[in-house]
Computed example of a mutant assay.
Amino acid sequence: MIQRFIEWSSKERLLIGASLIRVQFALILLTFFILNYGQRDLLWGPDGIWSYGNFLSSHNNGILNLFHFSASNLFFEILFHLFIVILVLYLLGIRTRLTGLLVFIFFWSFYYRNPAIMNGGMNLLRLELLYLMFANTGAYLALTPEKPVRDIMKKSLLEKMIAVLHNVAVMAVALQIILVYFTAGIYKVMGSYWQDGTAVYYALRLHEFYWPGVNDWIWNQTWLVVLASYGTILIQVMFPAFIVHPKLKYFALAGVVSMHIGIAFTMSLFFFSWIMIASEMILLNDEDYRKIKQWLRKLKELAIYFRDHKLVFRYEEEK
């Protein structure tokens, strides 16, 4: 039993999911910082809304980050633009172990420079970037791929330790997501609005999340509000059980992805939803992704088949 566990843990797992997470996290951060490029001085600069003096005197002062080294605006500009370059390298999969470490250090620094503008999704992203520093996120979709050693017998002790560290890291990301959903579901069960199926109604009525026309239509569909409220609780509380089942895991992932798409559009929590959906990519193993690729190939072939036959049918009609 111990020997089988050692052999299992000495081979890197979930490599496709880890690579997909890397690409998505890089895109998320690039989008976030580029969208805020014009107001970067206001958000993170030494004379911005959270001045350098306030930053030093805040309760986060004990957490060392890059901004502690200098208060100059030039230093801030170098950090900001260097972070953009590092994110591009991380996205392209260039030396992912090094760039992954740098992405974590830089995002950690910007996160604590002004944590007031961050949200729960960014907090989760910060934790997962910490785990992913120890994972092989460049096995796929990378210009300089981190090729894993497949033959366990030919691995050195160092390679086995690196593989074990990778597996621990990706499992930490997976467990983090599972715990987030389970604890969120348990808290919802204890709420009276969730118990009577009206929680989604009240959430959509909040002014901060109001989408004129769309939210009005949704909260007037009683069946949809009740279904969304109870369905959210079911999928979150049962998520740990569903995700380990070979068939139900697809149902669970479809459920939470649909939930976050709904949250993104009806509550304007775009980045939060994107981070959650990206994180869920680690919950499918490499074989699952190969099956999905086969399904997509078959769907493409089917679409081509119908397209060609439709053209033939139209040609015969014209004749």
Rank of each mutant, 00 (worst) to 15 (best):
L127Y: 13
M133A: 05
L125D: 15
K154D: 07
L132M: 11
F134I: 04
V149H: 07
G138D: 03
L141Y: 12
I117Q: 09
M122G: 11
V149G: 03
K155Y: 04
Y131F: 12
L158H: 15
K155D: 05
I117S: 08
Y131I: 05
R150Y: 03
A135I: 05
R126L: 15
D151I: 00
L158F: 14
K160N: 12
N119K: 10
M153S: 13
K147L: 05
P145L: 07
I152V: 15
G138K: 04
N114I: 09
K160H: 05
P145C: 00
Y140K: 00
G121K: 09
M122K: 12
N123P: 06
R126C: 12
L130C: 10
T144G: 05
L143H: 11
I162Q: 14
Y140M: 00
P145I: 01
A163S: 10
R150P: 01
L130K: 11
L143A: 09
G121V: 08
F134R: 02
K160M: 15
K147D: 01
L157D: 06
M153E: 13
Y140E: 03
A139K: 00
L129P: 15
L127S: 15
P145V: 03
K155S: 04
Y131D: 08
K155P: 02
N136L: 00
A142P: 10
N123M: 13
N136R: 01
E146Y: 02
S156T: 14
F134W: 04
K155L: 02
S156N: 07
L132Q: 06
M118D: 08
A135H: 03
L141E: 06
N114R: 04
E146S: 09
I152S: 04
Y140I: 01
K154L: 07
R126G: 10
L157H: 12
M118V: 08
